[in-house]
Nucleic acid binder design. Sequence first.
DNA 1: GCGACAG
DNA 2: ATCTTGTCGC
Length: 263
Amino acid sequence: MSAQVEEDRVKQWESEQERLKRLLLEEDTDDWQRSPDFSGLERVGGVDLSFIKGDDMNACAQLVVLSYPDLKKVLYGDSQMVTLTAPYVAGFLAFRETPFLLQALQRLQESQPELTPQVVFVDGNGLFHYREFGLACHLGVLSGLPCVGVAKNLLQVQGVHKNEEHQSRIAALHKGGDSFPLTAASGKVLGKALRSCDKSSKPVYVSVGHKISLDTAVRLTQACCLFRVPEPIRQAAADQDDEQRVEDLKKNLFVYRIFFNHI
DNA sequence: GCGACAG
DNA sequence: ATCTTGTCGC
């Protein structure tokens, strides 16, 4: 594909982001979001695409809805192999992934609308983005659902750098829930670096996707973290066979012990 | 040439 | 995104 065609496509993507950005809501829109303990919140969703080694075309799109606040019951799960058409271009991740995440949400709407999540965690940035319209915003606006963006790596945009200053602020995050703002050159706070649990010193980067405020997004993210990555995303990112794999390991250990006992 | 580049 | 092994700690 020619450089000119790719350039034109990026231009079109930029204007599409600009168009959708006008529909973005950066504030809390639901009652449960204002509650100190999120009372009224019962279903939290997570979406993710996972790939296998040498193949960047085929992926597994997953949507998981967990019970809140326990995060223990999988109320809904959807897993679908998909073939991606758009390439990965930094700043335009949404054009590669959103169609398949939306399809998963649509399948849920058609089959079990009562299980629709009240908020969706997205792996990737929301407002913390080159043009303040990352994947979590894109999916939020197109689905109409509140979304929270959670990135595992810092995107260096709008004057935010991972320099000495940044590293020292990370070192100052001592316990789960500690955070510091990611402030753009313009002065706008685009997101927050959050130590999501006590046991992980590496923060996650939280930003507004849609229909939620940054403070609520950060507070909710911490409430949904059993480990570094929010549980809904962690489970949407997990192989379907993971549980089976754990069972196999236990079985092998059992066989192993019997073997030695008999010798 | 070097560094950046969510997933 | 995914890769691969060990290694450290509870």
